[in-house]
Amino acid sequence: MEVSRLPVSASTRGKLISAGYTSFSSLSNFSPSELAIAVKIPEKEADEILKLATHDGKSDNTKGTQAVVSGGQTAWDMLKEDEGLRCITTSCAALDKILGGGINCKEVTEIGGVPGIGKTQLGIQLAINVQIPHEHGGLAAKAIYIDTEGSFMVERVLQIAAACLSEYYELPRRGSNANQPNRQPQDLLENIYYFRVCSYTEQIAAINYLGKFIKEHKEVKIVIVDSITFHFRQDFENMALRTRLLSELALKLMKVANEFKLAVVLLNQVTTKYSEGSVHLTLALGDSWSHASTNRIILHWNANERYAYIDKSPTLQSSSAPYAVTGKGIRDSVSDHKRAKLM
C-alpha cells in the first residue's frame, strides 16, 4: 500500500512523499510526534495518517506474511503462495491442460476471438465455475461480471448453472450435507455481481470502483470484463488519450488481481489489420494493449471445431486445444474425445 493513495489532503500527501515516505511500511516505526516533526505537519494530522496507515496495513495483511516490513515478498514466499492458489476450471479438460489447470488467480488473462466463437460463453462458464465447492477442487467463491456489450443472457446462465449443479453439487457426498437443501441455479446466479456499463466513462468508473467493492466482498475470486474493447473502438479524437486510458485500466486490473489474489479475465474482439498489402485478423486495441495482460488466449475456428491457442504467457507453452460450446456450457470437443479413445 502506498502513501499516494492515502485519503488525506493532496498537500499532506505531497509533503510525505517529498520527505521520502512512499509506502506504509516506511511509516510503521513512527510515533505521531516523530512523524509530525519529520514531515512538518500538525501532530493531529500525523496521528490520523498513522491510524489510516496501520489500519490499511492490517486489512491488507490478513494472511500474516511479512509483506509489510519491506513492502515486498521474497520469491520463496511468492512461490509458496502460488502453490496454495487454486485454478478455475474451464470445464474443458483439453483447455485446462494447456492452461496448466485452468484460469490462474493473481493473473490477468485476455481471451479474444471472432464474434460467435464463444467468448461470452466462456466468460459465463467461468463465473459459474468459480463457485464450485472446495470438496470438488473449486474455490467456492463469487464472481464479478462487468458487461459492456449486453450479451450476458440470464436464461443462458441458468442453463449453464443447472448443468454445473448436476455435475458438482448433487453428487452423493458423505457427511452432514444430507440436511442441506439442494442448491438451485438461481442461487448460483445470485453469486454473480453483475454490472452493465453503457459508456467508456462508466467502464473506467466501474474498474476504479472494483478495489473498494472487492474489499467489501472478499469472496470474489474472479472479475470478468466482457468485453474490455467495445467502448474503446469508436473514434477517439485523441488516440494517445485512448492508449493512456487503456493502460491505466490495465494497471488497475493487474493491481486488483494481485492484491486480492483473484483472476481477471478480459474478453477482447478482433479486428482486421492491414500490413504489407495483406489483411489478417488480430486482437483489437493495438500493440501497446498487448502488454496489458499476463496471458493471452486466442479462440479461433479450425474447420468445424473451435480451438483455443495460447498466444502469450510467461509460464505456459504456446499450444492449442479444441473445445466445444454445448447446451451445458463449455465442454470437451466431441471429436477430441474420439481421437483420445482411438489412441
Binding site: V154, E155, L158, E190, Y193, Y194, F195, R196, A205, F213
Partner: peptide, 10 residues
C-alpha cells in the same frame, strides 16, 4: 455503483 439484479431478458 451497485450490482444489478439479474432477471431473464424480456
Amino acid at each position: 455503483m451497485r450490482p444489478e439484479i439479474l432477471l431473464p431478458a424480456q
